[in-house]
C-alpha cells in the first residue's frame, strides 16, 4: 500500500489521461456515427457501400493492431501524402492523436449501428407530423429526430462507452501516459506489479460505476417524453 501511496499522483494523472482519451474518443465517435448512419440511411449507393465497407473493416481488425498501424504507419503515410500533394509539410501523429483517432474510427462504426437502429425505432408518424407542421429539414432534425434518436440510441451508446473506456488501455502500448502505462511502469520500478495492477482494475471499476450513474440520469432525461405519452 505504501508503494501505491507514493505513486498516487501518477495514478491520478494517468486516470485523467484515460478519461480525456475516452471522452474525446466518445465525442468523435458519436460524430462519425451520426455521419455514418446518415450515409447508410439517406446516402446514395456509393455512400452506403463505403459505410458498409467501413463497418466490415472495423469488425475484421483488432483494435491494437489498427492502433499500431496508424501510430507508426499513419504518420509516414501522412507525411508522404503531404510531400506528394504539397498541401502540408509535416503532421504529427502523436500517441494521443493515434489513440483517439483509432478509438473514434473503431467506435464510430459501432455508433453508426447504434444510430441506425435507433433511427428505425422512431415512429414514422413523427416525421409526417413534423412535415405537416411545415418544419424545415434542419428544424426537424433538431427538434424531432435528434432528441428521439438519442433516447433510442442511449442504451447502446452506453454499452459502447463501457467498451471504449476499456479500449483506452491499449494506448499504453504506444507509450501514452494513461492509467495503465503509469500503473505498469510504477509496478516495474517498485517490483510490486500486483498491487498496481489491482489498483488499476479498481479504478476502472469506479469509472464504470460512475458512467452507469450518468447514463441512467441521461436515459431518464431523453426518454421522458416517451414515458409521459404511454
Amino acid at each position: 500500500m505504501a508503494d501505491l501511496w507514493e505513486y498516487r499522483w501518477l495514478l491520478l494523472q494517468g486516470t485523467g489521461m484515460t478519461l480525456l482519451l475516452g471522452i474525446t474518443g466518445l465525442v468523435l465517435s458519436l460524430l462519425i456515427g451520426l455521419a455514418g448512419s446518415a450515409a447508410r440511411i439517406g446516402g446514395g449507393p456509393i455512400a452506403r457501400r463505403i459505410a458498409g465497407g467501413y463497418t466490415t473493416f472495423v469488425r475484421s481488425v483488432p483494435d491494437l493492431c489498427m492502433m499500431l498501424l496508424l501510430f507508426f504507419g499513419g504518420q509516414t503515410l501522412m507525411n508522404k501524402l503531404g510531400a506528394w500533394t504539397g498541401w502540408w509539410e509535416y503532421v504529427e501523429v502523436n500517441a494521443f492523436a493515434a489513440g483517439v483517432i483509432t478509438i473514434a474510427f473503431i467506435f464510430g462504426a459501432y455508433m453508426t449501428e447504434s444510430f441506425r437502429g435507433a433511427y428505425t425505432s422512431i415512429p414514422k408518424g413523427q416525421f409526417e407530423a413534423a412535415q405537416s407542421l411545415g418544419l424545415t429539414r434542419s428544424q426537424m432534425f433538431r427538434h424531432v429526430t435528434f432528441p428521439q434518436l438519442m433516447g433510442y440510441a442511449l442504451p447502446s451508446i452506453g454499452v459502447n462507452w463501457m467498451v471504449l473506456l476499456k479500449t483506452t488501455a491499449l494506448v499504453s502500448v504506444l507509450g501514452l501516459h494513461d492509467l495503465v502505462f503509469f500503473g505498469v511502469s510504477a509496478g516495474r520500478s517498485t517490483r510490486n506489479p500486483f498491487a498496481f495492477l489491482i489498483a488499476i482494475m479498481v479504478i476502472y471499476l469506479i469509472l464504470t460505476a460512475l458512467s452507469d450513474l450518468v447514463l441512467r440520469a441521461l436515459e431518464r432525461r431523453y426518454t421522458k417524453g416517451r414515458m409521459l405519452r404511454t
Partner: peptide, 9 residues
C-alpha cells in the same frame, strides 16, 4: 470532425 483531428495532431 476534421478540424478537431487537425487540432489534435
Amino acid at each position: 470532425a476534421a478540424a478537431l483531428m487537425v487540432a489534435l495532431g
